Structure formats: C-alpha cells, structure tokens
Simulated scan of single mutants.
Amino acid sequence: MTANLIRIVHTRRDGTLLEGSRKHDGASELVRPHGFRYFPSLGCLGITRSRDRQAQKWRIDSAAEALRAAGWHVEVEIDEDVRRSFAEAERTEQAEARAERFAGYADNAASRSQSLSDQAHGMASRIPFGQPVLVGHHSERADRRSRERISSAQDKSFAEAGKASHWADRERATASYETFRKSPRLTLRRIERLEADLRRVKKWRKGKSAGRFERDIANPETVTELDRRYLELTEEISFWRDIVKKAEANGHKFWGQCDFQKGDFARVRGRWYEVLRSNPKTLTVPRTLDPHNRVITRANCGERLVTHTIPYDEVFGHRSAEEQEAQMAAGDDQPPA
C-alpha cells in the first residue's frame, strides 16, 4: 500500500472500515466527527452499527473529503452484495465470547481486590490495635507512611471490587442475550414488524407508495437496493418463524383468534378478562380502573362499558365461561401462579 493512502471499504458483511491509518497519524481525529471510531478487536477505524446495513454514503463521503483536505489520498470502495446470511449463530457466538471475556475481567478484578485487601490487613496487623500515631516518637514518620499505604491499599481494593461487580453484571447481561432475543413474545412482535417492512418493499418494487413514501424505480440503484432488502427481509422472517416453530415444539402456547370465543376468559398480567370479541390479532375486553379487581367482566365495570384490546402475545391463560364460573363459586378468583 502506498504511503499516505487510506481506503474506506464498505460491505454488508463487515460494515464500513477504514484501512491504512496508523496510531497518532491524525486520521482518527479527522474522521471521528463523521461517525468513525476505533475497534480494538479489528485494529482499525470504522462506522459503528454499519454491519448488515446499506452504506451511509454521506458519512463516508464527508470523512473522505476531510481526509483529502488534510493531504491524504483516499479510495472509497462500496460493495453492497458482499453480505452475511441472517444466521444468529455468529451473533450468539459473539455474545458468548463477550460473556466469557467479561467473566475473566470480573475474576481478575476480584483477585486483585482480595490481594490488596490481604495486603492492607497484613500491614495493619503490625500496628497494635487502637494505638494512635506516637507524635514525637522516632517511629512517627514511618508509622504515618505505613498508615497511608494501608489506606491506599484499601481504597484500591474497594475500587477493584467495584470493577468486579461491574464486569459480573456485564457478563450476566450478555449471557442472557440469546434467551431474551429469542423469547416467544418478542419474536412474534419482531415478525409482525418485519412483515410490515416486507409489504412496503413489495409495494415500492411495483412503483406504488407505501408508508407515505415512494421509491424511484426508474433508478437502477434503487431497484437493486430494494431487491437486496427483499432478500434480507424474507430470510430474516424465515429464521424467526423457525424459532416460533421450535418454541411450539417445546410446549410454548401461542394464543390466537381460534382459541377464544365471546364469553371466554383470558389471563393477562395477573388478571382474568372476559372476552367480548376475538379479533385476528387482539382480544377486545372490558377496561377497569379498579386495581384490586382480579376478574374483569362486562357486569362489574359499571353502567358505561369501556373496552380496550389486548394482543395475543400478552395472553397467558384461557378459561371457558363455565370454568371461570366454577372457580368463582369455589372462591378462587386468582389466576394460577
């Protein structure tokens, strides 16, 4: 690579990366205002959150102009077709690697904290318990220095203990990444959002307006980008639908319109609601302002009935009208744990 040459390369697989810069060469200060930062794991500069996304050309162009104005020779290379499939395995592996790394940080900090604490206790044990500084004695200066070292070691021990707690929290949060990301409720909402995006892309590809926006399909670059987005969305939706199928196979119940009829009861956030109407995506139920009412029916919501809708992914149980009446007769109006 020739001297004073910088390459800004974007692919959807790797994101936007800056090649050819060295530490303290001034390039970092020039491109940082344009969204670039240093990635220690890659050993280079890049734009944050640029993987799996279309190139942010306004950032790339403005960074290139800033570098050229400072005397750099800059080459820009953008290849949107180099991408990775929507395979969560890689993201999960990265999360697991981070969790393992954070666990190591926590263990090291805890070890340093314990070592410093032991050091402080060892020095303190050489001073008789309760003995003050002997002012005027020949040992006064050494005694004061010893007490300062004890205090410093204790402060450092507390600081390392705080670091250990911080990294332990990061480890727990990172370790729960896959469980949270693949939770059934979150997955259903994600699929619904992605399907809405896909419907918009389909309309744009036909030259129609969608989401109050239009796309210029006379522009070949726009058509190509819409084709890429269509492929990405269909691939991602397929992946999450497989997650739903696996959850169902493992016994998770996904409630839907076919599971409820008028007069049934649905358990939602610790309450049982009478179903007034089952819709394709929601249940229509009575609304109550009484926080102590555990069973909400049309009859106990006052003379003026107010309703609201509840998505099926917030439903955690079902009872028929007869089952609910039997529970009430037995004095049990509480949802099961």
Rank of each mutant, 00 (worst) to 15 (best):
E192G: 08
I127A: 04
T222V: 15
V76K: 04
R53K: 12
E77D: 13
L45Y: 12
E140P: 05
G15F: 04
G317D: 03
E65W: 09
P40A: 14
L134G: 08
E90C: 10
V135D: 06
D79W: 06
E178G: 02
P40N: 03
A124E: 08
E195R: 15
A64F: 05
E225W: 00
L231N: 11
E214F: 09
Q257N: 08
E77A: 09
G43H: 07
L5Y: 08
E248G: 04
A299F: 07
G136H: 04
G270Q: 11
R37S: 12
V306I: 13
F265Y: 15
A106K: 03
F158C: 09
P40Y: 07
E75A: 15
P286A: 05
S21P: 03
H73K: 14
I150K: 07
A330L: 12
E160K: 10
G46W: 01
Q257K: 09
L226A: 02
F39K: 01
F254G: 01
S209H: 01
T282A: 04
R22P: 02
G270F: 01
I191D: 04
E195V: 13
V74D: 05
S209W: 10
F36G: 02
G35N: 00
A106W: 01
S21N: 14
E96P: 03
A89M: 13
E19F: 14
